[in-house]
């Protein structure tokens, strides 16, 4: 897609007066805002990552990969990176599994309540994720709703460890990212057509086969987009791991914050930020590759469509 977009103007005849100048004028405010809020801080972080830190928050202005080397040779930081990816994978899998049936229902229903139901599915977004995380703490904590209820019913004698660990963070994050996943899936389910399911059934496919052979392959692009979204959100998630993790879940986002504000080790914070960015790069590369493979099934191996 990108290749086409780049190559296309070359074959078009050169227009005497393009919309170039006007377009640039219209784009200017956006470009300035992006430069100030995105590009400059990014450059600044990259620069900071090449510095070295001394004692007591001292920053030595250098241009070296010493801090990178220090971080990458430390088992602790590899552990943090590992836990970040582990949390991302767990949250993504859980979110996809619970969101898929909902999204499938919402995409296929012909009920006149459909609009309302879709709106309901995303209403949690109206409440800040901080408030929702506190809500989950009240539910999952040792004195929380789940443990209290199970304890009083005599089902458990010891409280279940649902908060202050990875389990709690996964449960809360899953709920928090569900609206995003559902929206991404619904908008990615455009190829789903009830008539295709009817056609498969008329050719002798029982319901489960219809799902496996028709519904699932057609909804995969939507699932892939949702997966990317949730994974990226979860990699950069700060509030939920911090609050529900109770200081026992170490992920890149929380560690960057701690390094920058508590340890005052800005070079290390910058290196961790760059590593997180690199992780995003890998994830997006994988996504684009997977998307290309998926799309090839619809448009043919060369993607040739006249």
């Amino acid at each position: 897609m990108t290749a086409e977009a780049v190559a296309a103007p070359a074959v078009r005849p050169v227009r005497p007066r393009g919309p170039g100048r006007h377009a640039l004028a219209l784009l200017a405010p956006g470009i300035v805002a992006l430069l100030l809020t995105y590009a400059m801080p990014l450059v600044w972080v990259l620069r900071m990552s090449l510095n070295e830190s001394g004692e007591g928050g001292l920053i030595r202005q250098t241009v070296s990969f010493a801090t990178f080397a220090e971080v990458l040779s430390s088992a602790h930081w590899w552990n943090v990176i590992g836990q970040t990816v582990e949390l991302g994978v767990l949250v993504t899998v859980c979110t996809l599994v619970v969101s898929y049936p909902l999204a499938l229902f919402l995409a296929r229903t012909t009920s006149r309540w459909r609009g309302l139901l879709v709106a309901l599915a995303v209403t949690p977004l109206l409440i800040s994720s901080v408030a929702r995380t506190f809500g989950w703490m009240a539910i999952l904590g040792n004195q929380g709703l789940v443990n209290k209820t199970l304890g009083e019913l005599g089902i458990i004698s010891e409280p279940l460890q649902l908060a202050n660990n990875l389990t709690g963070v996964v449960i809360a994050s899953t709920e928090i990212y569900m609206p995003f996943a559902i929206l991404a899936m619904i908008s990615g389910f455009g190829r789903l057509d009830p008539e295709l399911e009817h056609a498969a059934a008329s050719l002798g496919a029982p319901r489960r086969t219809v799902f496996r052979r028709v519904v699932l392959p057609l909804t995969l692009p939507g699932v892939l987009t949702a997966a990317l979204m949730v994974f990226v959100l979860s990699l950069s998630g700060y509030v939920t791991p911090r609050l529900i993790g109770g200081g026992r879940v170490f992920v890149l986002a929380t560690e960057i914050y701690d390094q920058a504000t508590t340890a005052l080790d800005w070079p290390v914070a910058a290196v961790l930020s760059v590593l997180l960015l690199a992780l995003f790069g890998v994830v997006i590369a994988v996504y684009l590759r997977a998307q290309k493979v998926l799309e090839a099934r619809f448009t043919g191996p060369q993607g040739a469509r006249s």
């Binding site: 190829r191 295709l196 009817h198 056609a199 059934a201 008329s202 050719l203 002798g204 057609l218």
Partner: peptide
């Protein structure tokens, strides 16, 4: 049920599997 009726159906939209 449909899948055991042994009817060949050609739909108005053709309903061919795009994948």
């Amino acid at each position: 049920p449909v899948h055991r009726r042994d009817m060949g159906v050609v739909f108005q939209s053709y309903a061919l599997f795009p994948h």
